[in-house]
């Protein structure tokens, strides 16, 4: 007998959409019994970004040990589970398939229901797991691959309101980090350097969406940073990182522009949609300056900004098991034909 008993509300979640192999056991959508994440960052860092081939192979090596560890830590057997939830989209196909095939095999072998989970919807759900959140809410999902606002009517009903027209916010961090000679991933590196810099030293442009066409854009900001480094001479060469004057001010001012853009567009959307709760989630939601500024700006307007703990902002399987529970409860299970999709 396992210590967790024979609860019918235990869900095993499996996530392998990008560069983290993760598994978690969650009870009733909220109580996290275990959450194991194996990060591949070190394997991809030499390339400055995720390499799909390397990611797929690494997932293959890690998936079974990670699932076993999640079950062990939660002290449950497969037979204690109510269902298995797995990320089926969006993500890198070769990565998604590893988690999906594992979930299908386990579900088939043990006769368990299978639930396919949308990765972005799960990120939004993560913000509702640790605190009581009133829905509908506005969800900002901001990471290396996504920057989008959703109207979240229920955990399983998200409507896209706006998204980036070009680069994701996390991608802008990576590219500017590269210009400054910092490592990958760029977000934490820029954030660290920015702590020593003056966010008002350089006035980088803030993208403002046209009326009636809500959106984000970070491409112009990236170009503005490049021009700044070139001394505003479009034809000058880009200086080597060691020749950049006060890179901490560039990092702080750039970060401030990203944060301003995210906060501004999010608050305008909340107002337009008449939503009082703002959920901020995804890898970039770990950014301390974003958490601070979004929290302040929301409070000033009588709104509430909710951030998951950093562990549930970046990719994890607890959010997959959590949303998986909601889907399973409403009968939204999949069959073994469930397919992975990049988008």
């Amino acid at each position: 007998m396992s210590q967790a008993g024979t609860s019918s509300e235990l869900i095993l979640g499996i996530e392998s959409s990008c560069d983290e192999t993760a598994a978690a056991v969650v009870r009733a959508g909220r109580e996290v019994c275990s959450s194991v994440v194996h990060s591949q960052i070190a394997e991809h860092a030499p390339f400055g970004g995720v390499v799909p081939e390397i990611a797929g192979r690494s997932h293959l090596r890690q998936i079974l040990p990670v699932v076993e560890e999640a079950l062990d830590q939660a002290r449950v057997d497969l037979d204690d589970l109510a269902a298995i939830a797995v990320t089926s989209r969006p993500g890198l196909i070769g990565s998604l398939l590893v988690g999906l095939c594992t979930a299908k095999a386990l579900a088939y072998a043990r006769g368990l229901p299978l639930v396919g989970v949308h990765h972005i919807e799960a990120h939004a759900y993560a913000a509702t797991m640790e605190s009581d959140v009133q829905l509908p809410a506005l969800a900002l999902v901001v990471s290396g691959g996504h920057t989008a606002l959703y109207r979240m009517a229920s955990p399983t009903d998200l409507a896209l309101l706006s998204q980036t027209l070009d680069d994701a916010a996390g991608e802008a961090f990576d590219k500017v980090a590269h210009l400054l000679g910092l490592g990958y991933p760029g977000g934490p590196e820029i954030s660290r350097l920015a702590e020593e810099g003056d966010p008002r030293a350089i006035r980088f442009p803030r993208y403002r969406a046209k009326e009636g066409r809500p959106s984000f854009s970070f491409s112009g900001l990236k170009t503005a940073v490049l021009y700044h480094l070139r001394g505003q001479d479009a034809l000058a060469p880009t200086p080597a990182p060691e020749d950049i004057e006060r890179p901490q001010d560039v990092a702080a001012s750039f970060q401030e522009a990203v944060v301003d853009t995210l906060v501004g567009e999010t608050l305008r959307s909340a107002e337009r949609e008449g939503l009082e709760t703002i959920l901020v989630t995804g890898g970039v939601a770990c950014n301390a300056r974003l958490r601070e500024r979004m929290g302040e700006a929301a409070a000033e307007r009588g709104l509430r900004a909710v951030f998951p703990s950093p562990a549930y902002c970046s990719d994890n399987a607890a959010m997959i098991a959590g949303l998986g529970f909601e889907l399973w409860r409403t009968g939204a299970t999949a069959d073994l034909e469930l397919d992975a999709s990049a988008r």
Binding site: P46, L92, G145, T164, D167, E171
Partner: peptide
């Protein structure tokens, strides 16, 4: 949108459209 993160985006138009980004050349070559 930028395909830097996922290396390739596929769009459906009158022809399938595959959008690559080799900014991180090592990743794209692999």
């Amino acid at each position: 949108t930028s395909p830097t993160f996922t290396l390739m985006h596929e769009y459906a138009g009158r022809l399938p459209c595959y959008h690559f980004d080799a900014w991180m050349s090592g990743r794209e070559a692999l």
